[in-house]
Structure formats: structure tokens, C-alpha cells
Design a protein around this nucleic acid. Structure first.
Lengths: 210, 210
DNA sequence: GTAAAATACGCATGAATATGCGATATAAAA
DNA sequence: TTTTATATCGCATATTCATGCGTATTTTAC
């Protein structure tokens, strides 16, 4: 028996969801609320398996509720409900530990399936949401930084620079003369097209050379 | 009619998939191959809507095939097939523009559903995969770095430092004396516990202060 | 097989940085 | 009300950095 808690401000939808879930074998609605004003004590009292959480609610909204819950409880599965696949909210919800994100217009049968999936550790998502997530995801790592053709030795030097080493320290670390360090660094600057240590360090971070 | 191309090295599975898909209304397998050695010309010749792509194949594997296709074709939907929900491969595939990622043990009915979802712009994922994606996703932005209690002015200075400004340039930019810049930077070093510009820059990147 | 890198080192010089020890003024906090 | 944090500025000094112009050997690439 999957125990469900519902947070949804619209009374019709709240009732509809409750009836749907209570009318299905293996599901049970413990309670439903119209906002998250007392979400912590409610979750604590009812100990649900899954929470259906509307995003937009007067009072404490779903995102706030999600954050509050996750501060003290990482066990309960939280399924976000929303009307739109709004980019920002999706991101915010996922970053804060939501287990799934589905549109309200999801057909009843699908919704029950999603709840079950969430309960068993899955991450149910409406496909339009999933597409967005993948897009965001790939935008992170697609730009994998240019290749500046740094030689092995130059990479070593740069890495030491990034870790805060002075020329003197680098020389000692690499068993070479400080003047050699200089010439390496000069070459590095040429290749990275910078002209100071801190710029080189910044570029190393930006382009993920380290 | 959804036109499908299959890349799968295992002959039994390849045949099984072909029969399943061809035996279903609205689906049609155009061809199937045992590796991606000629993936570009094949995709060009058959112009499929969806490609089922196994990850592990002798010869040119699925990830390689995916990358090659995406260099010239962003339209065709590519559904990755795999035995395990291997973290690294999932990441790699998604970063390279896969539209979905499903386990081979997916039941036939589900698989057809997934193909349809992919075709209509969705991002079908086995729930265990989706969970992983969400975890990776949230790990990006959860650690928001410590707070070093930098004042507003100090944050400005640090930001300029990170962008390669010299003391002189910062003074000009902020309409203050260079000695004031010095004292700000000294304070910043104290707070960040560093003692050089490049260390401060590195720390700013590491702790996402910028 | 030759040219181009990569690696190593030296010297000189001016610019930039790090640090210390001040001062003054304002605003917020204890 | 006194302290604390912030913001501003000045001077002095030692260190570090950036740059230019060299030389020399070894490795790599075409």
C-alpha cells in the first residue's frame, strides 16, 4: 500500500486526485492540503511514501515546501505537479531533490504509474520535461574546452600555478631552474593568449584544463 | 508510420526487435546492422525517424555512432539501448545528444511506447536511468560553496581580479585609489586565506564565488 | 632528414604584487 | 556608547612577475 500526501490548492483537482488514488488498489491518500504552510509537521505526522506537490500555491508554495522537507527528510519521494513545463521551475525543483516532475494533464492511469515509479526509486517525468532536462544537461558539458596544445611539461607547470605555486616553488617541485619555469610560463601565456598568472589560472578553470 | 533503424550486434536480439517492431501497427523497421561502421551513409540512405542504438558493439560502437550522426544530423531521434545503467555511458550519451536511454530488458510494450515518445520529441528513459540523471544534475548545483563574508566592495574587486584586471585597472574601474585596491585585496586574502592573486582567483572558481 | 617543437638554462630590467604600519570617516552592531 | 566592520587613502619595501634576448640539447613531426 503506497501512502500518499497531496498538496494542491485547487479544490476540484485535490478532490479528483484523492478519489482517483483512493479508488485504486494499492494506493491510499493519507491527507490533502491546500498549501505547504505546515508541511513539516504534516509530513512528520503522516509519514507518507510519496508526496504529490503542486508548484503554484498561495501561501507556502511547492518549491518552498520541497526545500523545507529535504532539509530534514531525504526518504520521502516527492513528485512535483505543474501546469507548464516551465524551465526555471524544473531546474529549481530537480536541484532541490524532487524525485519526479509531471504535468497536471497527465492521464490518470499514467499518474498512478508515475506514483508507483517514484515509490520504487524511479524518476518519473513527463516526456516534455525529460527533454528539457536532457537539453540543460547536455548544455553543461558540450563545450568541452578548446585544446591549446600545451606540452606535458607546460601542463604540469600550469597545474602548479593553479594550485598557487610561485615560480620558485614550481622550480623546486619540478627540479628545474627558475629561468626554465619562466620560459615555460611564457610559452603557456602565448598559447592561452594571456599575460598574467591569474589570467592563466582563470582560463584554466573556465576551459576545464585542470 | 514510424520508420526505425536498428544497431545491435546480438543477432537474436536484433531479430527479436525487428519482429516486435514490424509486427506492430504504425511501426516499420527499415534495416538493422551489427555495428556503426557505416552509420553515416546508412542513416543518409534510409532516413529513419528513430534509431535504436546499442551501446556496446564490436567495431564502431553506439557512442561513436551517436557522435558521428550528431555531427551532421540533429533531426533523427536516437534511443540508446544498454544492458546496464552505467553512469559514465549515460552521461556520455546524453551529453552527445541522445534522445533517450533505455535498458534492454524493457518489456516490448514499453519499448514501443518509448519509440513513439522519442519520435514525438520526448525523452524516454528507464526510471533507473532517470534517477541517475537527476542525481548528477542536482550534484552540480547543490554545493554552492562556503560564504567567506566578503563585503560588496570586496566582491567587486574579486570579480575584477578574476577577469584579469591589474590593481591599476581595478582602481580606474572603481574610481578609487590604488592603495584602496590594495587594502581591499589584503582583506580578501585574509578572508579567503590565501596570499596571492592567482590563489584568490582559483579559490573564487573552486567555491563558485563568481 | 630537416624543420619545428619541446625542454632546459642565464641575465637584465621594469612593472606588478604582497605586506606592514599607519590614518580617517561612516555605518551598523553589541 | 563603545566596538566592529566597511571603505577610503598614503608610504615604504622586499618579493615576485612579465618580458626580451640570448644559447643549447633532445624529441617530434612532416
Amino acid at each position: 500500500m503506497i501512502k500518499v500526501l497531496i498538496y494542491e490548492d485547487n479544490p476540484q483537482l485535490r478532490e479528483g486526485l484523492t478519489m482517483l488514488i483512493n479508488g485504486s488498489d494499492g494506493f491510499e491518500v493519507l491527507a490533502s492540503f491546500k498549501n505547504c504552510n505546515n508541511v513539516l509537521s504534516e509530513v512528520d505526522a503522516y509519514r507518507p511514501d510519496v508526496i504529490l506537490m503542486d508548484i503554484d500555491m498561495p501561501g507556502t508554495n511547492g518549491l518552498e515546501g520541497l526545500k523545507q522537507i529535504r532539509l530534514v527528510n531525504n526518504e520521502v519521494k516527492i513528485l512535483m505537479l505543474t501546469v507548464f513545463d516551465d524551465n526555471k521551475n524544473v531546474f529549481e525543483a530537480i536541484s532541490n531533490g524532487a524525485n519526479g516532475y509531471v504535468l497536471k494533464k497527465t492521464p490518470p492511469a499514467k499518474l498512478l504509474e508515475y506514483i508507483q515509479e517514484a515509490q520504487s526509486g524511479g524518476a518519473p517525468m513527463t516526456s516534455s520535461i525529460a527533454t528539457q532536462v536532457l537539453k540543460m544537461f547536455s548544455s553543461f558539458h558540450s563545450e568541452k574546452g578548446e585544446d591549446y596544445h600545451l606540452s606535458e611539461r607546460e601542463k604540469q607547470v600550469l597545474s602548479l600555478l593553479v594550485n598557487g605555486y610561485s615560480y620558485k616553488m614550481i622550480a623546486a617541485e619540478m627540479f628545474i631552474a627558475i629561468d626554465t619555469v619562466r620560459s615555460h610560463i611564457k610559452k603557456i601565456y602565448e598559447k592561452l593568449q594571456v599575460n598574467s598568472k591569474s589570467e592563466a589560472v582563470a582560463k584554466a578553470f573556465k576551459d576545464k584544463l585542470v
